[in-house]
Amino acid sequence: MILAGIFDIALITILLACAWLALTTPDLLRAVVLFIAFGLLAALAWVRLQAPDVALAEAAVGSGLTGALLLSTLSVMQRAEARRKQEHASATTEEERRA
């Protein structure tokens, strides 16, 4: 009983910490990875609360697939930004040469 209580409090603490860090860290890649960890911990909580069906869905969909979606979006945005920076840099050197 006491052991279960300790487990509950530890799990909830880690869950809340993961969520808070995922939402506030300035690095978006780290935020997404923390969110995936958060989803897996939530799946653990569902098992603890006797909801194994929900845990299966959460681990596969809520954490895994959502994570894949977020990572692919992030990479598209980062690549577009890198390309824009490159174009910008080449445009400025062109201008400097002309001037």
């Binding site: 935020a31 997404v32 609360l49 909801a51 809520g62 959502t66 977020l70």
Partner: peptide, 24 residues
Amino acid sequence: LLRKILGMNVMGVGVFMVFIAISY
């Protein structure tokens, strides 16, 4: 926007957690 979407998902997990906790 990516962080807003993360926030939306965390909100969702919070709601799910209330549901599952009540059913326990």
